[in-house]
Design a binder for these strands. Sequence first.
RNA 1: UGGGGCAUGGUGUAACGGUAGCACAACUGACUCUGGAUCAGUUAGUCCAGGUUCGAAUCCUGGUGCCCCAGCCA
Length: 566
Amino acid sequence: MSEHISGGKNFIQQIIEQDLAQGRFQGVHTRFPPEPNGYLHIGHAKAIVLNFSLAQQYGGKCNLRMDDTNPLTESTEYVEAIKEDVRWLGYDWEDRFYYASDYFEQLYQWAVELIKKGKAYVCDLSPEEIRQYRGTLTTPGRESPWRNRSVEENLELFERMRRGEFPEGSRTLRAKIDMAHPNLNMRDPVMYRILHAPHHRTGTKWCIYPTYDWAHGQCDSIEGITHSICTLEFENHRPLYDWFLDQLGVHHPRQIEFARLNLTYTVMSKRKLLQLVQEGHVRGWDDPRMPTLRGLRRRGYTPEAIRNFCHTIGVAKFNSTVDLALLEHCVREHLNKVAPRVMAVLRPLKLVIVNYPEDKVEYLEAINNPEDPQAGTRPVPFCRELYIEQDDFRLEPPPKYYRLAPGREVRLRYAYFVKCVEVVRDPATDQVVEVRCTYDPNTRGGAAPDGRKVKATLHWVSARHAIRAQVRLYNHLFTKPDPENVEEGKTFLDYLNPNSLEVLPECFIEPSVQGAQPGTRYQFERLGYFCVDPDSTPEKLVFNRTVSLKDTWAKVQKRLQQQSAG
RNA sequence: UGGGGCAUGGUGUAACGGUAGCACAACUGACUCUGGAUCAGUUAGUCCAGGUUCGAAUCCUGGUGCCCCAGCCA
C-alpha cells in the first residue's frame, strides 16, 4: 500500500536521508518489536505505521519481531493477537517474522565472547545488593566484589548458570563497563538473569534469559536493521546499545527515539489498560471504549482511518497529547466516503400520517452513498405509521430549531412533506407519545412541485417494516482530558466516565440491513457511523456507534442552554 | 545537588539564517433532500533575557519549565 506523507520531512526521515547520502547504510530496514505480553493499542499503531511506512518510503523492508526475553509475562496468545492486529492494520512482514528467542544461542555465544574479552563477568550479588552497589543518580556506584574473576572462572560459572546449577536470582552475568558512569545504565548492567521458568517457545531449554539491553541491539544487528526506532524512554539506553555492538564489532544499526502517542480522554499504558480489563471497568480488551486496536476495530474504526491518523499526527521528540477529536475526524473522513447510508431511529416516536391509506405500502428510492455514485440506490418501504427520532419533534420549539413542531411542515427523507396536525400525549405523564401529520401526495420523493421549501429533513423508519436492534452509544472513557494527571489521593480510575456506555435496547432500523454481518459499517443518516457488533444474533442486531456525525444543532443547543443558564 | 532529552496558535506538526505554513478544534458565511458532506473565510503561535547578523523560530550565552533514568521489566 502506498500512502502520501504530506508536508516537510520529520526528523527521522532527515536522519535516514543523511545516513543514505553519507553511505552509512545502503538501504533502510526497520522493525516493529513488540513484547508479547499485552494487546496492541493506538500508540503501537503509531510505531507500526512509522516503521512500515519508512521502509516502504525508502524502498526497504520492515520486520515483525516478538521481543520475548521475559518468559514470566509473555505468551503465544499475545503473539497471535499481535500478528492479527498488525495484519488488520494493513501491513505485511512477508517472511520476516522473528522472535528474539530465535537468537538465544547466538546471544549466548556472544556473551561468551565478551567474557573472553574481559568485558563481562558473573556476579554473585543479590538483586538487593546490586541495587545498593549501583549508587544513586548523584553518587557513583561501587564495583562488585566479583568483578575481577578470571576469564576461566567466569566461563565456567556462566556455563553452569546455563545448565541450571544455581537458584533463581543467585547470579547474573554483567557487562564490565563503569560503576561511576553518570548514566546508570552503564554501571555494569545485567545481561543475563536466572529464571527457572518455561518460555512459551523455548520451553525449558533455557533457564537464563537475556535482558532487554543485551538482546535488543544484537537482535537488530542479526536482522540487518539499519534504523532501530524506539520510544523516548530508551534514549538513556542508547550508549549501552552502542557499547555492546561496538564490543562485538558487528553490524551496527542506529537507534532513533521518538515520543510515544498520548491521546486526550484515555490512558495508554499497558498496566492501566490491563487494570481496566481486570477490574471490570470495561468488558474486555476489545471493549469498543478501549484504545486497543481490537477495541477500535470492534468500535468500527477502519485501518485506513487509523493509518491516516498516524500520518497526520507526525513524529517528534516532544511529549505531546493529541486531541481525540483528530482521531474522530480521521474515521469520519474515511467512513464518509465508504459507509453506505441507512435510516435508523434510535429513540423512537410514533408518527402517523392521518391522510395516508391504512394498507398502502410504497417503496421509495434512497441513495446508498451520495459520496459514491457507484453505490447505487435501494428501495425503502413507507407506510402510514412511522417512527421518527424523539429529538426531531418539539412541542415548543426553541429558537433556531427547525425540525417538526405543531403546525410545522418538514420533509421525510426520500418520501413526502408532512405537516404536524395533532399531538397525542400520555394523560399520566403528559409525554408526547404520538405525532399525527398529514402528507402532501405531490411531494413524493421529497420535492415540492410548487417549489416551496422546508427547513428540515428527517430520517424515519416504517413501523411495519422496521427491524429491531440494540444500539450501544459510546462516550469518552474518562471525564477528564488528562486522566493520568491525578489530584492528591486519587487515581485515574476516579475519573472514569460513568456514562461512557449508553445502551439503547429498542431501536428501529430500515429492513435493508437485515442479516448484516458483524463488522459491517453504516452511516445512520443524521446520526453517525455504526458498526454491527459480534454480539448480534439472528433475532436481534447489535450496533456500536463508532462516532457521531458532526452536529451543528447540538452546538447551537448547548450554547443556548449555557446562555439561559448564565 | 548527576546524566540524558524536549520547548512554535487551544491541540498536533512544518519552516534548517530570508514573507512563520499545514491539519484538527473554535468561530463566520455560502450551498445542501443528512443541521452530514463540500466550499470560502476569521481568530490564534516561535518559553524568557541578552548577544551575533542587514536579517534569528533557526546560530551563541545565560535562565525558566516539562519529560526520562537508581528492575535480575521492556
